[in-house]
Nucleic acid binder design. Structure first.
Lengths: 229, 229
DNA sequence: AGGCTTGCACGTACGCCGTACGTCCGTCAA
DNA sequence: TTGACGGACGTACGGCGTACGTGCAAGCCT
């Protein structure tokens, strides 16, 4: 009747499909078992508990990131490509992304992106501590942006529904009222790219204050503001 | 016996205290009721359901942000102060922060921070769409950073426990292995400030490409890289 | 004073949940 | 043939959110 013999992989796949179809709240051991045409407790022969299953989901999604890194390319382009690769899976598994981003992984599954990113930053001339700081900046930006795109993240982000022209009091919040039309619609692709460019540029400028290898971003011999550091 | 008469405010307060003491997972209607020395269903006289209660928690935490905005100050300083004010409540309610940041608020409770931030950016000379984009950048960075600080957010962030010297394979992840000591310890205060400075600087540079009012950041007459935009 | 409305505290009950534990059965080695 | 073993499964327990009904006390109108 049931052709394939049940396995951790099949269970995780079913979980992902369920999450994408009905949302993370719909996930329960009973539901997944039903989806697989299987008794609930059979799952526990392949997965120690629900938490581990969700970690499996996160790992699985994370491992689908396609890294086509070209070490010969300019580091700014490599950063751009890596950032977009990361975002791409978030679009492929929008509802699972929340899970990926809000779980503390206890395996090496998520280390490959880190490895690639750090290697890229090192090749750009940053020393160890700098590369780590830059990476953290990028991760924070990407995580924050993806959370907003995926539909989580609250009103100061803000939600289209509430401030649609009416509702918001122009006396209390004049600027919000004025900019309401811009706040409730936006082009996610453009905003993401804009953010990446902003960060890349900021990093370029920062890098040149304490030069590593002479790998300058074309055209940016910018003196930097004193406030930095 | 019970002096005060039960109210939405008391319930929310109890929820916050419980979250901070035992974590968000410990929150249940029964648990909160017990904490208040009250029957479970009594809560429903003041709160429509659990979800609304959690929204109340988010609103309450958000409303405690202290904004001491000085419109006379330089806009870069105003941005710094607002960012730190936001982060301060995250430190005061670390476990509730996850909730604040991962919920879609459906009230105007979170609009005041937005108002202040947008007003600041407008005063710095940005037009509407630019101010909105900058705000979104800052929110993404702050949310992403706070999630990491609060202890959520996964291995590519990465978690101290797993890659402590051993565990990580130097063949597969040479850079990670090399930088492991820097990856598992960091100074959150310094990193946050660093990120804010990086963004402020990036925004300053961006602003000067399409000048608004002559409100230049002291010492930054930086030509900007062509790649931007 | 008597009766009525209203609001709040509370108990019970239902249908979910995660999972500990015991049972049953097909397969394969000896 | 027999024994062990691994995986599928059922039952059961404690906890969850909450719909619904009950009872009590305070405020109102005559």
């Amino acid at each position: 009747m049931t052709s394939e013999p049940l396995s951790r992989k099949r269970i995780v796949a079913a979980a992902i499909e369920l999450i994408e179809r009905e949302g993370a709240d719909a996930v329960s051991m009973r539901r997944i078992a039903a989806e697989l045409g299987v008794g609930v407790m059979s799952l526990y022969n392949h997965v120690p508990n629900k938490d581990a299953l969700l970690s499996g989901v996160a790992e699985s999604v994370l491992s689908e990131i396609e890294f086509t890194d070209d070490p010969a390319a300019h580091w700014t382009d490599r950063v751009r490509i890596q950032a977009r690769a990361f975002r791409q899976i978030a679009h492929h598994y929008p509802r699972s992304t929340m899970l990926v981003v809000s779980r503390q992984l206890h395996s090496n599954a998520g280390l490959l992106p880190v490895e690639r990113a750090l290697a890229t930053l090192r090749s750009a001339g940053f020393d160890g501590p700098e590369a780590v700081k830059m990476l953290r900046m990028f991760i924070a930006f990407i995580v924050g942006t993806l959370l907003r795109e995926v539909g989580v993240t609250p009103s100061f982000a803000p939600m289209p529904a509430t401030l649609r022209a009416d509702q918001v009091d122009p006396e209390l919040f004049p600027t919000v009222a004025e900019l309401a039309p811009m706040l409730d619609r936006c082009d996610p692709d453009e905003e993401f790219d804009f953010g990446v460019e902003l960060l890349v540029q900021a990093i370029s400028v920062h890098r040149e204050r304490a030069p590593g290898e002479p790998d300058a971003l074309p055209g940016s011999a910018a003196p930097s503001p004193e406030r930095l550091g």
